[in-house]
Design a protein around this nucleic acid. Structure first.
Lengths: 143, 143
DNA sequence: GTGATTGCAAAGGTTTTGCAGTAAC
DNA sequence: GTTACTGCAAAACCTTTGCAATCAC
């Protein structure tokens, strides 16, 4: 079983949600793709391999649920398409303005200055990340 | 004349683009709203005051052009609606997961660690910002 | 058995595109 | 006079919603 399957499915039950084949398929597909910041549609197509009758609306509803339960998070994007990643407090991304792809910047996210002022003025901080915007190598060549 | 009007309009001419009343109206409206990270529709409604015949499609085309010319930039968002801001190298935002609003974090953007590794591996960096995601005070109350 | 969950199809909202007419150069 | 630019309407796109049928509990 993939890393993270069991504990995340248990979290569903803790919150009195049902363990349906659709939810398992979405979680499994998400975990397979999580390194690539998948879109809802990418997750949908991968999850169909695990649950052939799955509908796209269910994927959206399931991803919303996982966000609410804190299992996954939306990644800020610049092309209007929702992308998701595993829930983690702080790390960093590169967003390509042309293709919309998200690249993970592993080592840089470690020492981010989480703004103190926010938490003392009523904001609830879920995540804090460095976002670098520009053109990725392949898009840069084709501008 | 608003700050930034003249030099940005000149930039249009440098790139052999025409100086139409529509483009002036969009730029003027954007500058009026730029502190609030306006959406295309907000810019459209404000720009109608300066050019009554303006169409929404023109606003989108004009904003795309301004992004290409480096006059403005898209802000990473988490709700799928494009927001724009003045072109600036580095600063920081708070994104509210519920209402989608963007808050500017003025003082925190100063000493961001721009990742060296990126620029040495073919990425073109246009901007580098700290993005904090969570719930803003008013949305936090109503969850 | 009951109520949460599903799949489908339709609706919703934002953004893009085709095209004939218009206006900046 | 050319040709870029515009406005309109339609299309495209991602996402959400209504509803009857289904399935986890």
């Amino acid at each position: 079983m993939a890393v993270g399957m069991r504990e995340n499915l248990e979290r569903l039950q803790e919150h009195e949600r049902r363990l349906t084949p659709q939810r398992k398929a979405v979680l499994r597909a998400f975990l397979e793709l999580s390194q690539e910041h998948p879109t809802a549609d990418e997750i949908y197509r991968a999850a169909k391999n695990h649950c052939a009758t799955l509908g796209l609306a269910t994927v959206y509803r399931t991803l919303d649920l996982f966000v609410q339960l804190g299992i996954i998070q939306k990644v800020p994007s610049v092309d209007g398409i929702a992308r998701y990643e595993v829930n983690s407090l702080s790390h960093s991304h590169f967003l390509c303005l042309k293709c919309g792809r998200t690249y993970e910047l592993e080592e840089e996210g470690v020492n981010l200055p989480v703004p103190q002022r926010l938490s003392t003025s009523g904001f609830e901080i879920l995540k804090c990340s460095l976002v670098v915007v520009g053109f990725c190598p392949s898009c840069r060549r084709s501008i």
